[in-house]
Amino acid sequence: MYVAGIDIGSIYSKAVILKNNQVAASLVKRTGGEIRTISHRIMDEALTPLGIQLEDLKSIVATGYGRISVPFAEKQVTEITCFGRGTAQLFPDVRTVIDIGGQDSKGIKIDERGRVTDFVMNDKCAAGTGRFLEVMANALEVNLEDMGPLALQSESPEEIGITCTVFAESQVISLVGEGRRKVDIVAGIHQAIAERIYGLLKMLKIEERIAITGGGAKNIGLVHELEKRLGTELIVPEEPQLIGAHGAALMAMEMAMHRKGG
């Protein structure tokens, strides 16, 4: 039995196809453009290698900020619930999930079954999110993927005091103008984001173990800064961006089973 989870994020869209609880296929693609189109395209691309079609899926759950615009989804579930489920499946001893997405960062508390017991989410502003990193990488003309490793090279990070994306960008540009070292600026940016996320997390009663998911988890510099503040090692899934889609697929599987049983 095949089911799917689809996670339409603000920057990336993700899909996970499960066959009897095992991941049969998965895909990450830039969102861009119309969500209806991208959701069809991503499913086609994920399903083609399996030799099956949308109609062959017993259930599809959509999550992510674009979840309401996925025309073929049977149910929409928030990414908060899905990241909880997905993480618990892979790491049953995790109690706190830090999710750093393109538009949001979140702290999610879960129980042993992956059910959400509390959560916090950033406000409208983009500070402390993937978008912030992207804007800074652009301002510094550094590839996004190189930001994390660069940050680790710095011995004296610059102070980036302001965590508003717009102000921070102009601060970064003036630091560049003053001839400061790029690695130090990059390290400063990572500290600023980590501070912001840590401040958010402190609103929860953080319990170990702690996992980090979403695109932000792929940034080693950010993971490192967060680990310093939390005083513990973070669990980084092999494919951190896929956890939400995986959680959605697990819920799709439960729905399909529930129907079969009842």
Binding site: Y65, V77, T81, V116, F119, M121, D123
Partner: peptide, 12 residues
């Protein structure tokens, strides 16, 4: 974003 929070809260 408020929608996401509300839905997640009610799911919870």
């Amino acid at each position: 974003q408020i929608r996401t929070r509300l839905e997640a809260f009610i799911e919870m």
